[in-house]
Nucleic acid binder design. Structure first.
Length: 287
DNA sequence: AACATTTTCAACCGCAGGAGT
DNA sequence: GACTCCTGCGGTTGAAAATGT
């Protein structure tokens, strides 16, 4: 029998014993106990020595994504969602890199969030989620509302991640410099893309809840700005025409409408997500 | 209540890159 | 340099849960 054949046989024999699928409580206990005694790493050795009939890779994944003590459970906070949007804008699908900035969240969780929430919305709008166009939708509608929600929850919910906790990250000059939002020339970029958006989003027909209002302002974009969060989305003082509370009116050309969100109470949402943004009306598909 | 459909997310897979030999 | 092994990453899958009819 050739070496290759022998190897194949061994793989099959091992494969017959290898467990797959959902982990049982006993397996979790075995893995947790083993790591408590010997530490993590050397996953193939761990898989054999612990008595688990799992591959090393599977053990590693189970530990890192589920069993590790500092794993956070539950819905992503608005702060976390905002950070994901920001970082994805900069780095794309670099999930593990993004996860480094969200303590307790795993790359898998962030990836799932992006695929199930963000990409879903992009599909519904018939926009490629990696496109410039979608980026601008996110920047113009999602980011401001998340920012608002964030501020809201920091005022009302002491358990949530405080604004200050993001400060070191967002104020870090290297980090800020790296972020795409800050590097964008708003005076051209935003106006061009909002014009594109207005081609498929008939904003004047939006059904605005009574707690909100729509302001039309030909020649200007009204954009919500949280004063605690000026590092994005790409607003620079020289562009501001006037300020109305939390709103700043920006002198962009070709844009016809902005949405003010400052009166809406979103604090009751268990999970604030993109659905909240699009619920204001039905948008016409691109084609 | 029963069934169908959709959504969520844990887990798997293949691939790439690094370290050791 | 070539090979093997291990680790980590990102894409994908499919079972379970949630939601709709």
């Amino acid at each position: 029998m050739s070496d290759i054949m022998k190897k194949k046989c061994n793989e099959n024999e091992e494969g017959a014993e290898q467990r797959k699928g959902p982990w049982t409580l006993e397996e979790d206990t075995l893995l947790t106990d083993y790591i408590a005694r010997n530490g993590e790493g050397r996953w193939n050795l761990l898989a054999k020595a612990s008595g688990l009939k799992r591959k090393g890779k599977s053990c590693r994944l189970r530990w890192l994504n589920y069993l590790k003590p500092d794993i956070k459970r539950g819905n992503l906070t608005p702060q976390e969602q905002l950070l994901i949007l920001e970082l994805h804008c900069k780095w794309g699908n670099r999930w593990s890199k993004i996860a480094q900035y969200l303590p307790g969240r795993t790359d898998n969780e962030i990836k799932n969030y992006w695929r199930t929430r963000v990409q879903k919305q992009a599909r519904q709008l018939n926009i490629d989620s990696s496109s410039h166009q979608f980026l601008e939708v996110v920047r113009s509608f999602w980011v401001p509302r998340l920012t608002h929600k964030m501020k809201d929850s920091s005022n009302t919910n002491t358990k949530s991640l405080p604004m200050d906790s993001l400060g070191p990250i967002l104020q870090d000059s290297k980090f800020s410099h790296d972020l795409g939002f800050n590097n964008i020339d708003c005076s051209t970029f935003v106006s061009q893309d909002l014009t594109k958006i207005s081609q498929f989003m008939d904003l004047s027909d939006l059904e605005i809840p009574s707690s909100m209002h729509l302001e039309e302002s030909r020649g200007s974009v009204i954009q919500y700005v949280n004063e605690d969060y000026r590092s994005f989305p790409c607003l620079e003082d020289e562009h501001i025409v006037t300020t109305m509370g939390n709103l700043e009116i920006l002198p962009f050309q070709d844009c016809q409408v902005g949405v003010s969100t400052y009166q809406e109470d979103v604090t009751q949402d268990p999970m604030w997500n993109m659905d909240d943004i699009w619920q204001f009306g039905e948008y016409a598909p691109l084609n």
